[in-house]
Design a protein around this nucleic acid. Structure first.
Lengths: 164, 164
DNA sequence: TTATATCCGACTTGATTACTCGGAATAGGC
DNA sequence: GCCTATTCCGAGTAATCAAGTCGGATATAA
């Protein structure tokens, strides 16, 4: 549990693809989705990339030969920015929402579990913010091109979960 | 996002309640749910406490004056054990499931994002395992009894999410 | 024997996720 | 100017999952 949705999954992969091609031509969603084995979900990617554009993480050009490129060099894009753009603020529990001090939960200091969820949130934030797109591209360099991408069926996801 | 479900939320609160009363009589679900403002969900708690018993985190006695007690002193119960019992293995992404090395994703080393999700998973695990029930009870001691517990409606949850 | 509990599996429902659909706007190449 | 490739946009849908319900069996103290 504590899952990242497909928005986060696909969106991060999309950004890694853009990082790999940083400096070159704009990448169309068609190209990206094929490279990532997501050609069936190209329309879904449209939605995701919209969030990324609104957060100024990518820039787009329309029309023929159009597409997307990173708005900044990969070293300057923290993974936390990407995930937040796609999934919203990190908040394992409603009383532990990043940034906003929730008025909604009136247990305030009386709630002993708040400490716990706050720490979980900070741990996630730090993990995400301590890596950049460049780190991910780097890690993969030596074996670039190897391996096919597989999109998991809901069935497979469930199967995996059973392993616990 | 990256939410803990109500299973984790209520289950942790239940365990904190048991920790507060460690050494005393068994606590019935009726008592616990009233103390935590969850009286409406007592049947739901039954489900959760079942998982906790199966993982030997609590012991139960049936019949009148029955109830639940911690199987170990609070200092010896890591929060990670509790959350895993309730929500399953920590796995922000299917390819980053605790323990099991997933055969399902054949991208293997070729997948640059695996590093990211692995780190997120470890960060969560460490945060949870570095706290015990005793830590949570401690943190709350000075103001015990203050503040009412509020169960949030789905509407309120959605409202909170908009804040991002 | 009665009241209070845990125990158990199956069922229901509402919310959320993961898409799909149809079409408008924009830009390059002929 | 027209055709094609592309981004852009809002609304709709279908499947999944979380959250909670229901009915009843079993155990135990008073």
């Amino acid at each position: 549990m504590l899952r990242v949705s497909t928005r986060g999954e696909y969106g991060v992969r999309l950004m890694v693809d853009l990082a790999r091609h940083y400096g070159g031509n704009a990448r169309s969603l068609t190209e990206i989705s094929q490279a990532e084995g997501l050609d069936a979900k190209i329309q879904y990617l449209e939605q995701l990339v919209k969030c990324l554009r609104e957060q100024r993480l990518v820039e787009s050009t329309r029309g023929a030969h159009g597409g997307y490129r990173l708005a900044r060099p990969p070293e300057q894009v923290r993974m936390g920015e990407i995930v937040r753009a796609l999934e919203g603020q990190i908040a394992p529990m409603i009383c532990a929402t990043e940034g906003a001090m929730p008025v909604i939960c009136d247990r305030l200091d009386g709630c002993s579990t708040k400490v716990l969820w706050g720490r979980v949130r900070d741990a996630i934030s730090n993990a995400l913010d301590s890596m950049t797109l460049a780190d991910l591209v780097e890690a993969n360099r030596p074996i670039s091109g190897a391996g096919q991408f597989v999109t998991l069926t809901p069935r497979a996801r469930r199967a995996e979960r059973q392993l616990s």
